[in-house]
């Protein structure tokens, strides 16, 4: 067996083991931990949407909170108007994708640092608009999602299944020919253009897919908490997605989930006593990652494991 396919197999086995063990975890955890784990999966899905745009297509977007908030409200109104959960989720995904198309089409017109700015301004604008239109969003006070009571474990498996689905779909996308073009654009946009690709089109497409996924995360978060408010549009959600992805490892499927899990864990360890220093810690962590470990945890693990297996291969041969 060649080194490449061996590594591939190893990765597949490791992922399956990880996914399965998360699936059986609720059997051993208390109610509170199950709720936390459910949230981690939602945050992982949300960070994954950013990762598709940044880690795979190379666009540092600060606009994910727009899709998150929009998804949460679309789902809320879907439930209020009694469309049922499945249809509401379809609406959330379509709405997120449509919004992604629009935001993407605007944002790709500018390049570099200006791109970041346009997405940041977009995020701020959406938050302001949500605050200003209380009749629709309920403003700060928000809206209740009229839900029947569900068991915590039941909800966990709903989110778990959903996270698995989104993870697999994203994996299929990045391994597809379209995903290859995304990665080429990340490497060198102008070069991809010279090879005949309409890179702006692909960048908008990446935004649309990322928008759909982020909207689904927002919808599921609203569905889990039973409450949505204008603060779902706050830019700090975008910031969270950025930090989770960079910490976990951008350009990987597992990275966003790992990052979300790690930071949620740290926040819980700090608990209410030390909770105030959490943002400071996150900021310093980000600086440290940028300077020392731009590949994040998953990238680091990958490097260690490949060095280990190379060594073993050399010893054997």
């Amino acid at each position: 067996m060649s080194g490449g396919s061996k590594r591939y197999l190893m990765k597949a086995v490791a992922s399956s083991v990880a996914v399965t063990s998360i699936g059986v975890l609720p059997l051993f955890l208390g109610r509170f931990q199950v709720v936390l784990l459910t949230e981690v999966i939602i945050w992982g899905v949300f960070a994954l949407s950013f990762n598709l745009i940044y880690g795979y297509t190379g666009m540092l977007s600060f606009g994910q909170s727009m899709f998150f908030g929009a998804g949460a409200y679309i789902l809320t109104y879907g439930i209020i108007w009694e469309f049922g959960l499945p249809l509401s989720l379809v609406m959330v995904a379509l709405g997120g994708a449509l919004l992604g198309l629009i935001v993407g089409a605007v944002a790709v017109r500018v390049r570099g640092a200006k791109f970041f700015l346009v997405t940041l301004v977009g995020a701020i604008l959406f938050h302001l608009i949500a605050l200003d239109n209380r009749w629709l969003t309920g403003g700060d006070d928000g809206l209740l999602v009229p839900l029947q009571f569900r068991g915590i474990t039941e909800n966990f498996y709903l989110i778990y299944g959903f996270g698995l689905f989104v993870g697999l779909v994203t994996f299929a996308i990045v391994k597809s020919p379209v995903g290859l073009v995304f990665r080429m654009i990340k490497g060198d946009r102008e070069r991809a253009e010279l090879l005949g690709y309409w890179t702006d089109g692909y960048r908008i497409l990446s935004f649309a897919i990322g928008g759909a996924i982020a909207a689904l995360a927002g919808g599921l978060y609203g569905y889990t908490t039973g409450f949505v408010s204008a603060d779902f549009f706050h830019w700090s959600y975008s910031a969270d997605a950025v930090v989770w992805t960079v910490l976990g490892g951008s350009g990987t499927i597992a990275g966003p989930f790992v990052g979300a899990a790690l930071l949620t864990f740290i926040r819980e360890v700090l608990s209410s006593t030390w909770g105030v220093v959490y943002p400071v810690l996150v900021g310093l962590l980000l600086v440290g990652l940028v300077l020392g470990f731009p590949d994040g945890v998953v990238g680091l693990l990958g490097r260690i494991s490949s060095r280990y297996s190379d060594k073993k291969g050399a010893d054997g041969g």
Partner: peptide, 30 residues
């Protein structure tokens, strides 16, 4: 001084200075 190694890279300096933002904002809050 801290971010000197990445200051020529737009993406990394956005991330790095954003980290500084979070740290300063968090400190003020604390």
């Amino acid at each position: 001084f801290i971010l000197k190694p990445v200051e020529q890279n737009h993406t990394l300096s956005v991330l790095g200075t954003f980290g500084v933002t979070l740290a300063l904002q968090g400190s003020a809050l604390t």
